[in-house]
């Protein structure tokens, strides 16, 4: 496996660093203070390769609070609202696209 710092990074738009929280697996994002947040709005965003790499290294260096950090695309609306950049990230943030068994409406 190539070490993350040596991997080629291709970024076509704004990105964040995301992972799963160790204790409960919840989806978290790296924030500007270097902590983890469940709120995408609070995530550190960049469009620059070097910054993205630095954020990723910071995320990966924390092996105790969050697991499996990686760079994920986001979309930024003109008024600055962040939304997930693809279906997988949408599902990670908002949950399954299907009603859960036993939930109301089933």
């Amino acid at each position: 496996m190539t070490a993350p710092q040596q991997q080629k990074l291709k970024i076509t738009g704004p990105v964040v660093v995301t992972a799963n929280r160790l204790g409960d697996g919840a989806v978290v994002y790296l924030d500007v203070q270097g902590g983890w947040t469940t709120s995408l709005a609070a995530a550190a965003v960049t469009t620059k390769v070097d910054e993205a790499r630095a954020l990723l290294m910071q995320g990966l260096a924390d092996d105790i609070n969050a697991v499996g950090a990686y760079i994920a695309p986001v979309l930024r609306s003109p008024d600055g609202v962040l939304t997930p950049g693809n279906l997988r990230e949408q599902i990670r943030l908002h949950g399954p696209t299907v009603a859960l068994p036993g939930a109301a409406g089933m």
Binding site: N20, V27, I91
Partner: peptide, 15 residues
């Protein structure tokens, strides 16, 4: 590998 051998995966939303 230890958690996997006990059936524990980390999926999109949770374990």
């Amino acid at each position: 590998p230890l958690r996997l051998m006990n059936g524990v995966y980390l999926q999109l939303h949770a374990y």
